[in-house]
């Protein structure tokens, strides 16, 4: 299908799950009880995506809190810090690298299998990449940022191998930190080479909220098939550099501003998508929101995605796809 639609990964957590997570933190809810709520929320999230008509689904990350902390909790070598500020009045617990990194068992494969069992559509597997894991953790163990990143790359590669063996055909690696320190792009590229080595599934890297222009076109050396990028939030400033140096990979084109409460109209989303067609071949475009939807309300997330689907169908018709 032309212009496949997908999402970046996270969906808003329903109130009952937020409540259960809070109670779990206080020791008032058992792990197996929390798991039931997470499974229920995952089922609802997948049903929602099927109803809206998305083409490539995600599990919604109902069982994850912060995108780095979740993996740190499943890897040996990490501790978790006390509360630190993210921005405004938001706080989180940040991973701390305290020793050699080891993956005692697969981290996301069970959840992927469960999620895939709930739909006939392909289920995208989503992991946080090694460079972002390193950059967003405190490090009390490694001698250098390079050493930490490459150690993480090795264990994340093992997870990809297991996901592929389980049947995952689309795997997304989130590396939002890549666009922040241009001097370390070669490190991120080296790490991604390790992560995706020998993996035949479609490999997507998601990058957001940084200076993409500063890492383009060098970023195309990341060993992936597709770049899922946050673009609408910056009003498509990036399209000019993409025109100047050919974009040699697939683009996951961000058409929904996930930091805005406003639900875009299908017309507005259609306008955005048509801009993609000016720059990229239509068979190289996937359509998705800028970033994860977890900070939106459930109604906003649904409304935005419905507009995205409606707009994509209209554009497909226009181009005879």
């Amino acid at each position: 299908m032309m212009l496949p639609t997908s999402t970046i990964g996270s969906f808003p957590k329903p109130d009952y799950l937020r409540d259960a997570r809070r109670k779990f933190d206080r020791g008032e809810v058992r792990a197996d009880e929390l798991r039931r709520f997470e499974e229920q929320a995952t089922r609802e999230c997948i049903r929602l995506q099927d109803e809206i008509g998305l083409d490539v689904l995600v599990d919604g990350e109902m069982y994850r809190g912060d995108m780095t902390t979740f993996f740190a909790q499943h890897l040996e070598g990490f501790g978790i810090s006390g509360l630190v500020r993210s921005y405004g009045n938001r706080y989180y617990r940040k991973p701390i690298l305290r020793g050699p990194v080891r993956r005692p068992r697969p981290m996301t494969v069970d959840w992927w299998r469960f999620a895939q069992s709930l739909t006939r559509k392909p289920m995208k597997a989503i992991l946080t990449g090694p460079y972002t894991m390193m950059d967003w953790s405190f490090d009390e163990h490694f001698e250098s940022r390079e050493a930490a990143t490459m150690a993480l790359a090795a264990v994340i590669h093992d997870e990809l191998v297991d996901l592929e063996a389980a049947g995952a055909r689309v795997i997304q690696i989130d590396e939002p930190a890549i666009s922040v320190r241009t001097d370390e792009l070669p490190l991120a590229i080296a790490a991604m080479r390790v992560v995706t080595k020998g993996i035949r599934a479609r490999k997507i890297v998601h990058i957001c909220y940084g200076d993409l222009a500063a890492i383009y076109p060098k970023m195309l050396e990341l060993a992936v098939d597709q770049f899922a990028l946050e673009l609408s939030n910056s009003d498509y400033d990036m399209l000019e550099p993409f025109k100047r140096a050919p974009f040699t990979k697939e683009i996951g084109f961000g058409v929904l501003d996930v930091h805005s409460h406003r639900v875009e109209s299908a017309d507005k989303v259609g306008e955005r998508l048509r801009r993609a067609l000016e720059v990229f071949p239509s068979d190289k475009i996937w359509v998705n929101p800028d970033c994860g939807l977890k900070t939106r309300t459930e109604a906003e997330a649904r409304g935005k995605l419905e507009a995205m689907i409606q707009a994509t169908r209209a554009v497909r018709e226009e181009i005879g796809a």
Binding site: R85, S86, Y87, G88, V180, R181, Y209, G210, N233, H259
Partner: peptide, 13 residues
């Protein structure tokens, strides 16, 4: 206006 990354940190302004 909108959120932007504070230098190369994982925080925003």
């Amino acid at each position: 206006a909108g959120l932007l990354r504070w230098f190369d940190t994982n925080t925003y302004y």
